[in-house]
Structures are given as structure tokens and as C-alpha cells.
């Protein structure tokens, strides 16, 4: 490291500062949009996998197995390069030539669908962690199966899986860096671009790291409050009290 010349001010210099800001904005936007696909879809699939209906369970299982077993990097690529080729020609042409923000929208969709498979697994394991007796008790009280989910099982399940859901949300945020592979200028790609221009590798990557850490740190702290407030009485205490 002896010959490394530090040059922090370069990050505030003209084009580079703007790149970091816009990269950071894109990263946050991708993460939030992808999560707004992943959370409802993942919840629905997770619930489907715990129902009594075989076809629903099958669909849920296939979805989860396909989406979580292919590396995100490869999925990104498949959505961007392979899927348009498989569409009817007019649609494919529209996706390739006329769809606005093609790289951005593709990466949001891809990340959302991928993360949904993980959310589904969390929701399912949360639901399965609840003793069956609660389900039966709900039915015995005259609730419909839908009501049992809505008022008995889901509220408990979500509270159990808050820590792992937090992980998944942070996962979306950090995985958004893979959007650079199809040409979205998010935080990591802007850091790379600054490195290519200036060779100031440490400064560029340290800034990206700090920004990621800052956001995830805030999310973790916020979720810990949520976790504490929603703790289920009677279960083993969480963390230091």
C-alpha cells in the first residue's frame, strides 16, 4: 500500500460527486420498488404453500424452487436478454426498443421476483413454527380458514420472522448492486466508474461501503424497535433487554 496516493477530495469534484448521489438514489429506488413486489408476492406464495389446497401448494413450491435455485446474476441476464427473445415478436420488439427505462425496470422486476421466493420461505417457516393447535382452535371458534390466517396465524408468523425479513430487505438493498450487470448506474457501478476514471479505488469503494452501511444500519436499528414492540409474550426473550 506504500505507493497509494490518497485523494479524498476527488469525490467532491465535479462529475464524481453527482455520480455518487445519483447512484445512491438509484440503489434506494430499486430496493424499495423491488421490495414492494417481493413482500406481497412472497407472502402470497408463502401462504399458498401452507394451505390444504394441493394445486396452490404445487404452484408455490415450483415458484420458490425455480427462483431461489438460479443465481440472481444469471436471472438478471435471463430476464434482460433471453425473455424478450421468447415473447411474440411485437412484444419482444416493444420490450427491446420502446419500453421506457428498460434496464431499470428489468432489474426491479428481476430482483422483486427473486426476493419473493425468499420472503415466501420465511413466511412459510413462520407459519409452520406455530403449533397446529392454534389453527384448530381458530376453526373450532367458528373462524373461516381465511380468518384463521388473517387473525391468528399470520400476525404470529410475521412477528416470528421479523429478524429474517429484515435480512431479506437488506438483501434486496445490497443485491441491487447486481443491476449493474445489465447497465443500471447504481451505487456500485458509479464507484466502479469513478475507479476507472481516476484509479482512486479505495476512496470510491470506501464511500460506497459507508453509504451501504449507513442505510442498513438505520434499517436494522428501526427494525429492532419493531421487533421489541411486537414480541410475542411468553416466547424466549430476544437479545439484551
Amino acid at each position: 500500500m506504500g505507493s497509494y496516493r490518497w485523494n479524498w477530495p476527488i469525490l467532491l469534484a465535479d462529475p464524481y460527486y453527482g455520480w455518487i448521489v445519483s447512484g445512491f438514489g438509484n440503489t434506494c429506488l430499486i430496493a424499495v420498488l423491488a421490495w414492494s413486489i417481493a413482500f406481497p408476492l412472497g407472502s402470497a406464495i408463502g401462504i399458498a404453500r401452507t394451505t390444504e389446497l394441493r394445486p396452490l401448494r404445487l404452484v408455490g413450491t415450483i415458484y420458490v424452487e425455480v427462483f431461489r435455485n438460479i443465481p440472481l446474476l444469471a436471472q438478471m441476464f435471463l430476464w434482460y436478454f433471453v425473455v424478450p427473445e421468447l415473447l411474440p415478436q411485437d412484444w419482444g420488439h416493444w420490450v427491446k426498443r420502446d419500453m421506457p427505462y428498460p434496464q431499470f425496470l428489468t432489474s426491479v422486476l428481476c430482483l422483486g421476483l427473486y426476493t419473493a421466493s425468499r420472503v415466501a420461505e420465511q413466511v412459510r417457516s413462520g407459519l409452520e413454527a406455530i403449533p397446529r393447535g392454534q389453527h384448530h382452535a381458530g376453526l373450532a371458534m367458528g373462524l373461516t380458514p381465511a380468518q384463521v390466517y388473517r387473525y391468528v396465524r399470520l400476525p404470529v408468523a410475521y412477528r416470528i420472522i421479523i429478524p429474517s425479513l429484515t435480512s431479506d430487505f437488506l438483501g434486496v438493498f445490497k443485491n441491487s448492486s447486481l443491476a449493474l450487470t445489465i447497465g443500471v448506474l447504481e451505487l456500485t457501478s458509479q464507484a466502479r466508474q469513478i475507479e476507472e476514471y481516476t484509479f482512486a479505488a479505495f476512496e470510491a469503494f470506501a464511500t460506497a461501503t459507508l453509504l451501504y452501511c449507513a442505510v442498513t444500519g438505520i434499517v436494522i436499528l428501526a427494525m429492532r424497535q419493531v421487533e421489541r414492540r411486537t414480541r410475542i409474550p411468553g416466547t424466549i426473550a430476544i437479545g439484551a433487554q
Binding site: S167, L170, K174, N175, S177, T188, F205, A208, T209, Y212, C213, T216, G217, I220
Partner: peptide, 11 residues
């Protein structure tokens, strides 16, 4: 745990 979870693996 929070320190490491805050960082993208690639970094």
C-alpha cells in the same frame, strides 16, 4: 452481526 449485515458481500 449488524456490522457485517450492513455490508454488501461483494465489498
Amino acid at each position: 452481526v449488524n456490522f457485517l449485515r450492513s455490508m454488501p458481500l461483494i465489498l
